[in-house]
Design a protein around this nucleic acid. Structure first.
Lengths: 225, 225
DNA sequence: CCTACTTGATAGTAATACTATTATGTTTGC
DNA sequence: GCAAACATAATAGTATTACTATCAAGTAGG
């Protein structure tokens, strides 16, 4: 983590970009505007041409930062998990009881992001929407092995491992800590998507964050002795 | 359900196709070959041109059956859930104990499909791979509201409701039956994908179907009083 | 045998995802 | 203060994709 313009910033694996977007004004504009545009248009209708118009630059200039739009999405998602990891660290700092540590982590993994949580120069509220609606496109394709070799999923894996290791500490006999954590993460994203678009596939409860409540309750039950 | 060529066949909502692919030889070839090709190339690299070459026909002919490749994928996924529903019906027939009914359903939802389970003219083994790797692309896009209005998700919702209603019968006070079922379904697909491509995000256990075991165990725990 | 319908053959279009080249402006080192 | 290095802009061009349109040929039923 390095400080940048008075705000937190995360180090992202170099394989995902051709030139570090945080190293120039144009790069930072690319990140900002791509978050706005992907959130607005959806990743499928998002193009480098539209992005270039948005920031009054050219397609060719954007291609100097990212090989393609797939890698740009991968960058944004990596950023998101590094930010979540940072929040996991904050949420478990100076807490000894593993049960409490785990509860706090589940809270971080499942809660809805609001403006006041943002710490970096990117818009984390929009970024969470992008993660919910688009992030699985980063791995659901035939390039997943190559991207994995290039470290595109390291930030995600680090988050899963961090929480799984608390579970292992609490319950060394539990056989599926990673499966539990990735189920919670992917499940949260799906349930939020369903709440917004296909509510009959989930349970929407007035005045309650049902997603948060469900996964919290459910983790406790599963780890009960 | 209608019988066709000595094999079971499912009725699929007409909005998804322009002409029923089961009504002609060419249509059936389109379905068969598209399953082979999507499984082989992945949905992103799959095109109607390649499909046309594969079946010695033309792009224009395929467009007479499906408006676009998105709707063809939606058709295949709808077929899959109709098949799963059929298997849920078989697995709960003549069983009175709701607990046992639920256990059988979870088994159907989480088990890996093998050749001997196939009942229809489509290759359900390949179809399950497609559902695991591609099905979320049917709803993860900006057309989801329109597709939902056209009934593209009815087979999926029917499966979720069928299983959720057993849970409601067992535990009328449980607040999240739909969330639980869709978490199991989506979770299973993710965990199978992770097992194949990103094993550090899950737990792979030798000589055990960990996915099946995890979601079975976990459902019991959550519904325990 | 005529009509309707299905498929094949061919052509064409707009948009996308890039690549390449050259020009212009700006910063940095000496 | 000036050249070299570098970043960006401007422009052009290509292959592929996702379609649409038109017409001809074959075939099936009444």
């Amino acid at each position: 983590m390095q400080d940048f313009q008075n705000r937190i910033s995360f180090r992202i694996n170099e394989n995902v970009f051709l030139k570090d977007p945080l190293s120039s004004d144009l790069g930072k504009k690319i990140i900002r505007a791509s978050i706005d545009l992907i959130e607005e248009l959806g990743f499928d209708d998002f193009t480098f041409k539209k992005l270039a118009t948005e920031i009054s630059s050219t397609e060719a200039s954007i291609y100097r930062y990212f090989e393609n739009k797939h890698n740009l999405l991968a960058y944004l998602v990596m950023w998101y998990w590094r930010w979540i990891e940072y929040r996991l660290i904050m949420a478990t700092m100076n807490i000894d009881d593993p049960k409490k540590r785990l509860d706090n982590c589940i809270q971080v993994l499942t809660e809805k992001v609001t403006e006041d949580m943002t710490v970096s120069q990117v818009n984390e509220v929009k970024l969470q929407s992008i993660v919910i609606e688009e992030s699985s496109k980063v791995y659901l394709n035939k390039k997943v092995a190559e991207d994995n070799r290039h470290g595109f999923f390291v930030p995600y894996k680090d988050v899963v491992h961090r929480v799984a290791s608390i579970i292992e500490e609490m319950r060394p006999d539990f056989k599926y800590p990673h499966m539990l954590v990735s189920t919670i993460i992917e499940g949260t994203n799906h349930q939020r998507f369903f709440t917004n678009h296909l509510p009959r596939l989930t349970n929407v409860i007035d005045g309650e964050d049902a997603v948060c409540a469900f996964y919290g309750e459910f983790t406790n039950k599963i780890l009960e002795k």
